[in-house]
Amino acid sequence: MTDSPEYLKKRAFFDSLLTIYGRKPVLEALEDSSLPVHKLHLADSNRKDQLISRIEQLASERNIEIAYLDRKGLSRISKNARQDQGVALDLALPRYGTAEAFLQEQHNEHFELLALDGITNPQNLGMIIRSACAGGIDGILLPRKGCAQIDPLVIKASVGTLFKTRILRCEQLAPVLKKFAEQGARVCALSSHAKDTLRSIDTAAPNIFVLGNETHGVSTAVSETCSHRLRIPMQNDVESLNVAITAALISFRHQF
């Protein structure tokens, strides 16, 4: 049975929703009129302090739907009851979606992506997003499990670039990388022990650069999907770089 165009359109819309939470991140997002907002969610138990009043005022001025929920209902939206502070906001970002949709759109097109395998530090994730955005990377593959998720710390570290960067969600990274490879993408793991250097990779084929966990590197399951292994040459017996610095070097390697 083939899905109807109406269903596919509706699914694509909901795939484009990014839910953020926390009073200050939500307030800052509402203050940015360039960000398309779908819906504001508020806990009905919130005390009407200055921040909540301002959030409600901005939503009203922008004609944004407000849903009042009990704490349990709000936690289902935010997926982080401990830190949502009774506030969540759905952003309808055109550059936020799924890896599968991107793969269909970019068939036979050239692209370069960063794939994150076990990046658990929110500060690193935010800085990676910032570098990818500034350096012109076409997207970031971000699994829903095993990596830091988009939260107020990530938003702060990205300095607003999260909303300008194409984030491609997937359940697990290894199966998705295999699909990309089957359609001609070159999947490259960054490793300090690799023989080839980053400079040796050309742009004839689409490239995906896999960045591994801050301590353990690329996982075994993901490593098995990689066709290339690359290192960044370093001097003075330095063994490795912070993963966010590595992401910056990859993102900007064509700029100079």
Rank of each mutant, 00 (worst) to 15 (best):
Q183E: 07
A115T: 11
H110E: 06
A194H: 08
R229Q: 14
K179C: 07
A244K: 01
I201F: 15
Q123R: 04
G136P: 11
E214D: 04
S240C: 08
I128N: 13
I150W: 15
A115C: 13
T165W: 01
T120I: 03
A157R: 13
K195L: 06
P233H: 00
S219A: 14
N207P: 05
R144N: 13
H216D: 13
E182Y: 02
R186D: 08
P122R: 01
T197Y: 11
A205Y: 09
T215R: 15
K195C: 03
V210Y: 12
V243G: 01
G136N: 11
V222A: 09
E171K: 13
L190C: 11
S219C: 07
P152S: 04
E171S: 12
A204Q: 15
P152V: 02
C226I: 05
R169Q: 15
R199M: 05
G160R: 14
A134C: 07
A181S: 14
D202C: 01
C170Y: 04
I119L: 01
P122L: 00
L198V: 08
A134L: 07
L141E: 00
G146W: 00
C188N: 12
P143C: 11
A174S: 09
G160L: 12
A134T: 07
R169P: 05
G136R: 13
T215S: 14
G146L: 00
K164P: 02
R229N: 13
I155Y: 06
